[in-house]
Design a protein around this nucleic acid. Structure first.
Length: 378
DNA sequence: AGTGCCGGGTG
DNA sequence: CACCCGGCACT
C-alpha cells in the first residue's frame, strides 16, 4: 500500500468514525428532545429536530463525497477491516500529533504550558477504548520519536501545587488540565527553589538537592565515607521550599541553621518552615525541579510528610491551624512573606475594647493609628 | 460583622 | 517623623 493510499484510507475511516459518532450523538439528541418535548416549547423542539436531520443529511453527503474521491467503495470493506482501520487511524493520528516532526508550531497562545504536554501525551481518541491515559511508556505502536511529556522543570512549575493535606486541590488542578480551561494562576518567576533539611534541630537550607542530600548523608546519617552511596533515605529528611527572591529581605526569621555544616552558609539567612512546601516531594538527584503530585508522570516522588516537617524551632503560639492557614496562603497567592510572618494577634485587652470607639482620644497612639496596641501589650 | 494591625500613603 | 487608612487575617 502506498503512503498516499494509506493516508486516504485513514482519512476515510476517520471521517467514517466521526460521522457515525455524530450520528449517534444527533440521534441521542433527538431522543432527548422527544423525551422532554412535553415540557418544552414544541416549536423549539421542532427546530432542533429539523436541525438534527439537516445535519445528518449534510454528513451523509460529505460521506458520499469522500467515498467517491476514494477509489475503494465503503461496501467493499468488511466490518473488521473498518474497525482495524479505525484503530490504525487512531494510532497514526496519535503518533502524528505527538511526533515533533509533524507537529505544527504552536498556534494557541496558551499552549506553551499545558497545551504541549497535553497534546503530547494524552490523545482522547474515541477508539482507544481503554480510557486509561498514561504516557509512562510509549506503546510499541507509537512513534519511537514521540517526545516524552514535558518532564522538564519549566513546563511543570506552574502546576506544582504543594498540597499535603488537601488532595482535592490537586485533583481540581488536574481536571482543569484535562479540560481546556486556562489556568489563571500567575506565578512570579522570581521564585527560587531551595532545599531545607528537616532533621531535628537542623534548619539547613541549601540551594541544590544534591547538596542537601550530601549534608544529610554526612551530618545526620553518618555516611561521610560512602558519599556516592545513597539508598534514598536522605530523601525523607529534606523538603523543598520556594523563595520569592523579591521579598527575601523580609524573610529574616528567627530560624537559623543550628548545626554548623561543611557546606557554605545558605544564600539566604533562613526560612520559616511554613513557607516550605510540606507536601512537596522531590525528584531525583539530577537537579530537576520537583513535579507536581498531580502530574501523571511522577518520577521519584517521595513524600516528606513525616514528623520532621514541622520545625521544632518553630514555636509560635498559634497552633496547627495557623500553620495550615499559612500554607494555604502560600498556595493560593503570590508569595507575600510578611503574611506568613505576621505576628500572632495580641490576646489582651485593647484600647478599642476598653475605651470604645467613642473615646478614641483615650486610646494609645498606636491604636489610634491602627497599629499594634502599646498600652496593653501581652 | 467586628477587631487587630500591617503596609503604605500623605503632609 | 506623625498621622491616617485600606485591606487582610483572625475571631
Amino acid at each position: 500500500m502506498t503512503f498516499a493510499a494509506f493516508q486516504q484510507e485513514e482519512l476515510k475511516s476517520d471521517l467514517n468514525q466521526k460521522l457515525s459518532d455524530q450520528h449517534f450523538f444527533l440521534l441521542a439528541m433527538k431522543e432527548e428532545d422527544s423525551k422532554t418535548a412535553d415540557t418544552k416549547k414544541p416549536s423549539r423542539v421542532h427546530e432542533h429536530e429539523k436541525e438534527s436531520t439537516r445535519s445528518i443529511c449534510l454528513l451523509e453527503q460529505k460521506r458520499k463525497v469522500v467515498s467517491s474521491n476514494i477509489d475503494v467503495p465503503p461496501a467493499r470493506k468488511s466490518l473488521e477491516e473498518l474497525d482495524m482501520d479505525k484503530v490504525t487511524a487512531a494510532m497514526v493520528l496519535t503518533s502524528l500529533s505527538t511526533s515533533p516532526l509533524v507537529r505544527s508550531p504552536p498556534v494557541r497562545p496558551n499552549e506553551s504550558l499545558n497545551g504541549s504536554w497535553k497534546e503530547g501525551g494524552f490523545v482522547p481518541s474515541s477508539t482507544s477504548s481503554s480510557g486509561y491515559w498514561s504516557w509512562s511508556a510509549p506503546s510499541d505502536q507509537s512513534n519511537p520519536s514521540t517526545p516524552s511529556p514535558p518532564l522538564s522543570a519549566d513546563s511543570f512549575k506552574p502546576f506544582r501545587l504543594p498540597s499535603q493535606t488537601d488532595d482535592g486541590i490537586d485533583e481540581a488542578e488536574t481536571s482543569s488540565l484535562l479540560f481546556d480551561e486556562p489556568i489563571p494562576r500567575k506565578r512570579k518567576n522570581s521564585m527560587k527553589v531551595m532545599f531545607k533539611c528537616l532533621w531535628k534541630n537542623c534548619g539547613k537550607v541549601l540551594s541544590t538537592a544534591v547538596g542537601i542530600q550530601k549534608h544529610i548523608r554526612t551530618i545526620h546519617l553518618g555516611r561521610a565515607g560512602e558519599s556516592d552511596y545513597s539508598d534514598g533515605e536522605e530523601d525523607f529528611y529534606y523538603t523543598e521550599i520556594r523563595l520569592n527572591t523579591d521579598s527575601v529581605a523580609d524573610g529574616l526569621s528567627s530560624l537559623s541553621p543550628v548545626s554548623p555544616s561543611l557546606a557554605s552558609p545558605p544564600p539566604f539567612p533562613s526560612q520559616d518552615v511554613s513557607k516550605s512546601d510540606l507536601s512537596c516531594a522531590k525528584t531525583d538527584v539530577k537537579g530537576m525541579t520537583p513535579l507536581s503530585r498531580s502530574a501523571p508522570t511522577n518520577l521519584y516522588l517521595v513524600h516528606s510528610d513525616h514528623a520532621y516537617q514541622i520545625s521544632p524551632t518553630h514555636t509560635r503560639p498559634a497552633g496547627s491551624g495557623e500553620q495550615k492557614q499559612q500554607i494555604q496562603t502560600v498556595l493560593s497567592s503570590p508569595p507575600r512573606l510578611s503574611v506568613g510572618l505576621r505576628k500572632p494577634r495580641g490576646e489582651g485587652k485593647k484600647c478599642r475594647k476598653v475605651y470604645g470607639m467613642e473615646n478614641r482620644d483615650m486610646w494609645c497612639t498606636a491604636c489610634r493609628w491602627k497599629k499594634a496596641c502599646q498600652r496593653f501589650i501581652d
